[in-house]
């Protein structure tokens, strides 16, 4: 999948334990805000997940906020992909 365009702000996820709440907005470059009890420990890991998802969807940038409630890498990826997909709704290539 490539060449998607973020059209609006969208969120996915919850603040329940083992989940995360991800919000994605259109932006020229990547701006990541990562919060959570262990955000310092997992900062690099989470940045890599975000970069991989943006690359997968062919996105050059995005403003992304993640509130991590102890989510696995799989969960962060799933929430991020859902939020990106929702933010792209109506874009070419959908």
């Amino acid at each position: 999948m490539s060449g998607l365009i973020l059209l609006n702000t969208a969120s996915a996820g919850t603040l329940e334990s083992s989940d995360c709440l991800v919000t994605v907005s259109p932006a020229e470059k990547l701006k990541l805000e990562y919060k959570g009890a262990n955000s310092e420990i997992f900062a690099e890991r989470t940045k890599a997940i975000v970069e991989n998802v943006l690359k997968k969807y062919g996105l050059g940038g995005a403003e992304i906020s993640i509130q991590d409630q102890g989510a696995l890498e799989i969960t962060i990826k799933a929430r991020l992909e859902t939020a990106v997909s929702r933010a792209c709704k109506g874009a070419a290539g959908q």
Binding site: A12, G13, L72, E73, I74, T75, K77, A78, R79, E81, T82, S85, R86
Partner: peptide, 15 residues
């Protein structure tokens, strides 16, 4: 529905 589908797909692939 979209979020659940993506969550299940990601867990099936990587967990």
């Amino acid at each position: 529905k979209d979020a659940a589908r993506k969550m299940v797909a990601c867990f099936l692939q990587d967990y």
